[in-house]
Write a protein that binds this DNA or RNA. Structure first.
Length: 480
DNA sequence: CCTGGAGTTGTCCTA
DNA sequence: TTAGGACAACTCCAG
């Protein structure tokens, strides 16, 4: 009687460097590869709309890859534990394997499932397929989790980075016939509204798309990363985030590819800033694991009582990219149209919402959660708390970005604005980041009507900055 | 246990 | 035009 393993796929939609899959292939004669959809088990952070779009196409792609290997992706919908037990009984399997995830609700569920499977005499093992090091692998000198990024990253460069232990399997032997299953379309993951129409122009979900992005990054970008990463109108970053989030490529693969590429050219120093971004990703997971409340509560306790403003109109304008501040609107529209936003602009729009608007960072975090194809609870939480100043390793309160100054520094010619806010593309460069400052004669010469061609600024940048400084300063003195 | 250096991403003003 | 200091103080972390 052949030995059978169930590989429970979650956010590890890949064949290469997939530890759970590899172990299943090594120790068993045949496998079932299953994906179980039940996002209620991830509450209160059920997948957002953009993530669902990605997942749909990621599943389609992964299912095709399996088909090419003579098998099927066994998609089911329902309670995860019950579905696994059903599959176990149907296929007379010997074991269930999966790669670990790190969101508090998912950890809780997976621990429960492992315990219940064990009670039923089912072998259940999990592996690290998503991080360079897992949150419990890394400790401070004196013990305990890190709270500051720099020492955390220094530790990484002292440690031996785990090698790619699992290449691409030469062949897969599937249980035949495949257990009954759904096709991705039956999960109804695609949104009803057609806002996502353009996503496909920017993204190719799936393992092949991930490798394509990595190749492009190595060929065209990585050696210029240190400078170009701050220019939002340039392809200066890897754009691997959604692929990493859904596990279509592993951070180990990326790390090694980048390092190997650089070492041949003796350019190790030039790629270090990029490698540090991969470490940031681990750091975010480290923080969420050790401080699980941070996804909904400020890490710094003073902030519990902070008087955020209920400002529906402001928030709405921010979401829609109609604040009248070009760089903010460009970012929010890039997000809406592509499901992604350049990281520098993420900081900028987050600073604008929480500081110039004094709107609660969670409001912004939730919008990002719904709109980003790379929405990751760890990264999103860390980023928002950092910007709002209430996080573990947060920005000092007086660090308030100015969209005008940032435009001058990182989008001097206004290329990013021209791309995403075309209605002001005719403005002279001098005013493209601040249309309100342009003289009437300049505006009329291009038939620009302030407030009609483009919104008037929803706040005065300078006075709202001042107000935020006062509020944050007051918080500091009252919080001690 | 003590100590001292350090901490992703900024802006504004002054000299 | 550009470089440097103020904006704060606190906690983290390694030696």
């Amino acid at each position: 009687m052949p030995s059978t393993a169930i590989v429970w796929i979650r956010r590890d939609l890949r064949l290469t460097d997939n530890p759970a899959l590899n172990v299943a292939l090594r120790y068993h004669d045949q496998i079932v590869i299953a994906y179980i959809f039940n996002d209620r088990e991830e509450a209160p952070w059920e997948m957002g709309a953009a993530s669902r779009w990605w997942l749909h196409h990621g599943l389609v792609s992964f299912a095709e890859d399996l088909k090419a290997h003579g098998g099927a992706l066994v998609i089911r919908q329902g309670e995860s534990l019950k579905t696994l037990i059903d599959l176990y009984n149907e296929t007379r399997a010997d074991a269930v394997y999966w790669n670990r995830l790190y969101e508090p609700a998912v950890i809780k569920r997976d621990k429960f499932i492992k315990r219940e499977l064990g009670k039923n005499g089912i072998v259940a093992k999990s592996f690290n397929g998503a991080l360079l090091y897992e949150p419990w692998d890394i400790e401070k000198e004196g013990g305990g989790p890190y709270k500051i990024y720099t020492p955390f990253s220094r530790r990484y460069f002292q440690l031996p980075l785990p090698g790619i232990e699992h290449g691409k399997p030469a062949s897969l032997t599937f249980v035949k016939p495949s257990p009954a299953h759904l096709i991705p379309e039956q999960l109804n993951l695609l949104p009803e509204k057609n806002w996502h129409n353009e996503f496909g122009n920017h993204w190719q979900p799936g393992e092949a798309g991930a490798n394509e992005k990595l190749k492009q990054f190595l060929d065209e970008v990585v050696l210029r990363y240190t400078t170009d990463r701050d220019i939002p109108a340039t392809l200066g970053v890897s754009r691997l985030s959604p692929h990493l989030h859904f596990g279509e490529i592993s951070p180990r693969q990326v790390w090694h590819a980048v390092q190997l590429y650089a070492s041949f050219r003796q350019r190790e120093d030039d790629v270090k800033p990029y490698l540090k971004q991969l470490i940031w990703r681990d750091f975010a997971h480290h923080l969420l694991y050790h401080f699980p409340c941070t996804s909904h509560k400020p890490f710094r306790e003073q902030f519990v009582d902070f008087q955020w403003r209920q400002n529906e109109a402001f928030f709405q304008a921010w979401c829609e990219g109609k604040t009248g501040i070009p760089l903010i609107d460009a970012g929010m529209r890039e997000l809406w149209r592509t499901g992604w936003m350049h990281n520098r602009i993420r900081m900028l729009v987050a600073s604008f919402l929480t500081k110039n608007g004094l709107v609660h960072w969670l409001e912004g975090a939730k919008w990002f959660w719904d709109a980003l194809v790379d929405a990751s609870l760890a990264n999103n939480t860390m980023g928002w708390q950092w910007t709002a100043g209430c996080g573990v390793d947060a920005a000092p309160y007086f660090r308030i970005f100015s969209p005008v100054r940032q435009g001058g520094r990182f989008d001097q010619q206004g290329l990013y604005i021209k791309k995403w806010v075309p209605e002001i593309a005719n403005l002279p460069e001098k005013y493209i980041h601040q249309p309100w400052a342009a003289p009437a004669s300049v505006l009329s010469s291009i038939n620009f009507v302030a407030g009609k061609s483009y919104p008037l600024p929803i706040v005065d940048l300078s006075s709202s900055r001042k107000l935020a400084l006062e509020r944050y300063q007051a918080l500091k003195s009252s919080g001690q």
